[in-house]
């Protein structure tokens, strides 16, 4: 009886020792060196794996940062400047800061502006609806309203407004990862430069039709008249395919184009209300102190 226990203990212990030696040798022999800084960087990254940096996930981006000689072209839009400075500090390199961006929906086709002309009863996703036909309104460029972008957003920064039928982007939550831009089959969403106080001026339309049909389909469509191009003193507006586009890098927020636009296709957002011409200086101070 005793001998059975002794044999068991001895044989199992020797097997254990043997395997331990094998494992030790293998671990030594096939050891993969991994830069500990990758883990460090990954620690400070947001960990959402949103793909906004252009890499498959946060780990991939961390590897790319460690491997890269300079931070040129590498940016985590979620963490922004503070994160990139921290990462630069860990790696002992110089931080290259990129302008923060924000997503905007370039369509203002609410049911009021853009009357519904047909009814869609197929699969409720934008990709399918877009592959099947032009949409429930006469505008074949505008928002379809089934919310593929909202589903794609990993930061809870979007929702569909039931009244307008258009997606709404939260300025606080949007990190400009670009997932919604990719999800939209009609490339309505655009990443634009984030300005002070989240101010925005943009052409809220992507309709490339000529003026007549565009206006017929939607009251607030860009008709490609070119008035805004002439009004802009900073060369920030270009007109292509009957559609105006404001370069957010050049725009100085003078708001001249907004008043010029005959169809109110250009939107100004988060600006203080306009006042009479006489109190113009007051307006600027009001803007500053707000």
């Amino acid at each position: 009886m005793n001998s059975v226990i002794i044999y068991t203990v001895v044989s199992l212990s020797s097997l254990g020792a043997l395997f331990a030696i094998i494992l030790f040798v293998v671990a030594r022999k096939f050891r993969v060196f991994e830069d500990p800084r990758i883990d460090q960087i990954q620690e400070i990254l947001p960990g959402a794996n949103c793909g906004g940096c252009g890499f498959a996930g946060c780990r991939n981006f961390a590897e790319a940062l460690v491997k890269a000689d300079s931070f040129e072209g590498l940016n985590c839009p979620v963490g922004g400047a503070s994160l990139m400075t921290d990462a630069a500090e860990i790696l002992g390199r110089e931080a290259v800061l990129t302008e923060p961006l924000i997503a905007v929906v370039r369509c203002n086709g609410t049911p009021e502006h853009r009357p519904r002309t047909s009814n869609y009863d197929g699969a409720r996703t934008c990709t399918i609806a877009h592959s099947l036909y032009t949409g429930e309104t006469d505008c074949s460029y505008g928002c379809l309203g089934y919310g593929d972008c909202v589903v794609a957003c990993k930061f809870d920064a979007m929702y569909m407004d039931p009244e307008t039928g258009l997606p709404v982007i939260s300025d606080e939550k949007c990190v400009a990862c670009g997932a919604c831009v990719k999800a939209c089959p009609r490339t309505i969403i655009e990443l634009r430069k984030k300005a002070k106080k989240d101010r925005k001026i943009y052409v809220s339309c992507v309709n490339c039709d000529k003026g007549g049909p565009a206006r017929k389909a939607c009251k607030v469509a860009c008709i490609g008249c070119g008035k805004c191009v002439k009004a802009c003193e900073y060369d920030a507006i270009t007109l292509e395919n009957n559609l105006a586009w404001i370069d957010s890098m050049k725009c100085v927020f003078c708001r001249k184009c907004v008043t010029e636009c005959p169809t109110s296709a250009i939107l100004e957002i988060n600006f203080p209300p306009r006042k009479e011409r006489s109190s113009e200086p007051a307006e600027t101070t009001a803007g500053k102190t707000e």
Partner: peptide, 12 residues
Amino acid sequence: RPLLDYIRFGKS
């Protein structure tokens, strides 16, 4: 289920 709608999209 809208089978064909999705298949047509996938096919394209």
